[in-house]
Design a protein around this nucleic acid. Structure first.
Ligand code: SF4
Ligand code: SF4
Lengths: 144, 144
DNA sequence: TTAATTTCGGATATTTTTGTCCGAAATTAA
DNA sequence: TTAATTTCGGACAAAAATATCCGAAATTAA
């Protein structure tokens, strides 16, 4: 459904948020270890999130990544997906018939648009903090 | 949403079905031209559909691809997708957290499963002939 | 039988996605 | 100031998806 990059991005964001809640900044190293992702590749993705303003970073000893407390409830999954995958998710038609005449939609059109809209809605309505509430038991659930 | 291979496969199947209804067998060449897809790549995909028993092929002059009339109403989009992309569509979790403990689902779980189930239902409930009925005006809509 | 047509199958090439390496820049602390 | 730590950025590498090439096999018709 999503690209690997997107999966890593979401998982990383969840972990960062979880630690930020407890006032901890987390290093790339610990993130990659926690979410079980390739370190250097994860770094690239984190940079995208930083540039998009979804995550804050600080260099040097004691540095790392964090998300300000008030942002955790604001940030939606859709923002993370968009920062990484762009609007790939929202454009075009499942059949690859992007230029088909919208005035004569195929029978699949309504159903297809509906499924995609549902996915979009889900991502837009789900904030980062919502994902944390189910993880109170531990971080096990972020690993494969 | 789908792979390119899958898109070409669906479009090709639609065109073959449309022509088969009128008793015409269609060549790889005409398929690729009609659905605007790379010829050799399309050939590979058609072979997958043939091996899966969704499409019939005949070699030699006058040969080509076809779908028996009675099969056109039977074949579901899900079968085409499955023949090409396998069960990629149905497995795992959108976050890539496949081994997370299902007893402690994150808040996204229900929503995510629902979206995927809707997509699956849509594909399973849509037969090839349904897609044809919207195309009576012409084949223009199969091109980009 | 011969030639033409068309799918089949394997090898190869290109592009995109995923992943790695390494040095530079920033920050902190000794 | 120096050394250590950590993110940043660009170049590079590997893997997967997409796409091409070409000859073999099957079929048809002359
Ligand atoms: S009408 Fe059918 S083919 Fe056209 S965009 Fe909608 S789903 Fe795709
Ligand atoms: S509970 Fe959450 S993380 Fe686990 S499979 Fe479901 S959606 Fe994915």
């Amino acid at each position: 459904m999503f690209s690997k990059a997107c999966e890593y991005g979401i998982r990383a964001a969840i972990f960062i948020a979880l630690q930020s809640l407890q006032g901890r900044r987390v290093s790339l190293k610990s993130i990659a270890a926690e979410i079980n992702s390739p370190e250097a590749f994860t770094a690239k993705i984190l940079q995208q999130l930083v540039r998009s303003g979804l995550v804050e970073s600080l260099r040097g000893p004691g540095g790392g990544f964090s998300i300000p407390g008030d942002r955790i409830a604001q940030i939606r999954l859709s923002e993370i997906v968009y920062a990484i995958d762009g609007d790939k998710l929202y454009e075009g038609c499942g059949l690859g018939l992007e230029q088909c005449d919208a005035r004569y939609p195929c029978p699949l059109h309504d159903k297809f648009v509906e499924v995609r809209r549902d996915l979009r809605n889900m991502l837009e309505q789900t904030s980062l903090d919502e994902l944390l509430t189910g993880l109170e038991v531990g971080l096990t659930y972020l690993r494969r």
